[in-house]
C-alpha cells in the first residue's frame, strides 16, 4: 500500500504545538492517522479534500492553539459517520464544502487566514455550518480526553466529592464571614 502523506503544515492553522498527524488517502480510502498518539480512523464517505477542509474548518471555528489536531479529527470522524448514516447529511457536507470552495474561487484552504475567515463568515448561517458547529460543541468540549486541558475535573462522586478536595480553596479573595458561609460540618 502506498500512502500519500500530506504535509501536516498544510492543514495546521496558527498552531505550533500540535502533534504530527495526517489525512491519509490510499486507493480511494481516506484515513485520519496520528502515529504518535496511536489514534487513527478510516473514513467511509468523505474524500481527502473534504476531510482536510473539515479539519481546518473545525479548528478555525473553535480555535484552541494548544489542542492537537487529533481532537479536531475526532470531530471529522463523527461527521463522516453522520454522512455514512444519512445520505442527506452526506449531501449537505459535500455540497457545503463545494460551496465553500466556490466562494473562495478555488481551494478555500489555500486562502490566507483572514480571507478564510471572511469566507466562513459568509456561510455561518447555513445548515452546513450549523451541522459542523454542533458536532464541534460535543466533539470537542464533551471529549473527556480534553477535560484536563480545560481544567474540568469531571466526575467527582468516586473521589468523595470536593468536601476535602478544595471546594473552597480559592485564596485570592477574602473569605466570607461565617454568618454568610458557615464552616462545613
Amino acid at each position: 500500500m502506498k500512502n500519500k502523506h500530506i504535509n501536516r503544515r498544510e492543514f495546521l492553522c496558527n498552531s505550533g504545538k500540535t502533534l504530527a498527524g495526517a489525512v491519509v488517502a490510499s486507493s480511494g480510502a481516506v484515513s485520519l492517522v496520528f502515529p504518535t498518539t496511536g489514534w487513527s480512523a478510516q473514513l467511509a464517505v468523505l474524500n481527502e479534500h473534504e476531510s482536510k477542509t473539515l479539519l481546518r474548518m473545525t479548528r478555525e471555528m473553535f480555535p484552541h492553539d494548544k489542542i492537537e489536531d487529533k481532537f479536531y479529527a475526532v470531530v471529522v470522524e463523527a461527521l463522516d459517520a453522520d454522512a455514512k448514516a444519512s445520505a442527506e447529511s452526506a449531501t449537505q457536507l459535500k455540497e457545503g464544502i463545494a460551496n465553500l470552495d466556490k466562494l473562495a474561487k478555488g481551494d478555500w484552504q489555500a486562502l490566507a487566514a483572514d480571507k478564510r475567515g471572511t469566507v466562513l463568515k459568509q456561510i455561518d448561517t447555513t445548515a452546513f455550518f450549523n451541522q459542523i458547529k454542533s458536532k464541534c460543541v460535543t466533539g470537542i468540549y464533551n471529549n473527556k480526553d480534553l477535560w484536563d486541558h480545560f481544567g474540568y475535573e469531571g466526575s467527582s462522586a468516586e473521589h468523595g466529592g470536593y468536601i476535602n478536595r478544595g471546594f473552597d480553596d480559592l485564596d485570592w479573595l477574602p473569605n466570607p464571614p461565617e454568618s454568610d458561609s458557615p464552616k462545613a460540618h
Binding site: Y162, G166, F167, D168, D169, L170, L173, P174, N175, P176, D180, S181, P182, K183, A184, H185
Partner: peptide, 15 residues
C-alpha cells in the same frame, strides 16, 4: 439547620 459552606463560586459572588 446551618447554612451550607460556601464554595469557590460563592466566594467570588460574595466578594
Amino acid at each position: 439547620i446551618p447554612g451550607l459552606p460556601g464554595n469557590n463560586n460563592f466566594k467570588v459572588m460574595h466578594a
